[in-house]
Write a protein that binds this DNA or RNA. Structure first.
Lengths: 186, 186
DNA sequence: CTCACATGAGACAGTCTTGTCTCAATCCCT
DNA sequence: AGGGATTGAGACAAGACTGTCTCATGTGAG
């Protein structure tokens, strides 16, 4: 891990905990002098922008790695479900890098990040819509709502882990089951 | 609505959009001079604290209004489900006042708010646990996870409305169905 | 009309933040 | 060991934020 990466990771952690963290806070958290921090990112906005870019990269990689495009093309419930499981698992694997704090507040100011977000969001929605057509997911809900629900369940996972409500190893199972099957007893 | 309430409402809106908003921003958003803002809340922390208190008040009112305690006492699936529906609907009714941005970042600094949060959270978890015992909710998930899932689905709702993905009038239905039944076709 | 009161504008000092710069210490490669 | 690059500490100026204060304006009740 390069020093730059370490700084970004620390900054993400810090900013997720407190969006008001100063550059000094960020440098300290990274175990680095403030001057060094500024050597890597001349401006706070530049740091934020890179953070956003990385998050979007991760998101994109997750979708590519889970084979979203192929699953959509297949149009089959089986592959789509497998893809969805894989995708959620990947999301969960780095949901602190993924930056929930980040998703909302900073992105708005950067049109390029906004556009990419929208694009990725659409691709995810396309997967969910394909799941509906294939009979995997209920079709009486707007697929864009399903996309929001995915986001929500990830926030729930983050919340649960942060407050020590569930063990990290149970996460995948809990998230998948809750998203697909809901919470009603059967 | 008193001027104080108007200021609080504007501040909440503002801070949810950007936690770094300055007192000047907050005053402007409330359509009020900065001096007046300081007349009501001598300190930023004082404003934040009051905001937190109000959110917790709302939460508490929702649970009381939905009859959480009675539902738990009944131990019956029917009343518990009705209570849960009512509760979610109440949460949704004021999820901007409810302060999602607020729940995480500011609360930590105020022990009294933290404690109240924990207490309310426990009461909500108790309802969900009662739902499990009554055979309404699946019992193979930790009730504390269910509580996180409730939080997550509310974040999803907020996200969906913010980005115009679904109409507000569909919210209750979407949230309830998704939480209870999940997203799998049947 | 008048007076008490609340408000907005803005001055003000103190503090914090940001971005730049310098310098000495340290590290690493040869 | 020598020499170039990187680092941390810290000085520095510019600007922003906070909290306090004053004063002129405006509003409403009596």
């Amino acid at each position: 891990m390069t020093s730059r990466d370490a700084i970004l990771a620390a900054a993400q952690r810090c900013l997720n905990a407190d969006a008001r963290a100063s550059m000094t806070d960020l440098a300290t958290a990274a175990g680095v002098g403030r001057a060094t921090l500024h050597r890597h990112f001349s401006t706070r906005d530049e740091l934020l922008h890179e953070l956003g870019t990385r998050s979007l990269d991760r998101w994109q990689q997750s979708m590519r790695g889970a084979g979203v495009a192929e699953a959509i093309a297949s149009g089959q419930a089986g592959p789509i479900e497998a893809c969805l499981r894989d995708l959620l698992s990947r999301y969960l694997a780095d949901f602190d890098d993924f930056g929930f704090t980040l998703t909302d507040p900073y992105l708005r100011s950067a049109p390029d990040l906004m556009e990419r977000t929208e694009q990725l969001s659409e691709e995810e929605t396309a997967l969910l819509a394909a799941g509906q057509r294939a009979g995997l997911l209920r079709a009486d809900l707007d697929p864009r709502w399903l996309s929001s629900a995915v986001y929500g369940i990830l926030v729930a996972a983050r919340d649960a882990v942060t407050f020590g409500r569930i063990a990290r190893r149970d996460l995948d199972e809990y998230v998948l089951v809750t998203f697909l099957e809901g919470t009603r007893a059967r």
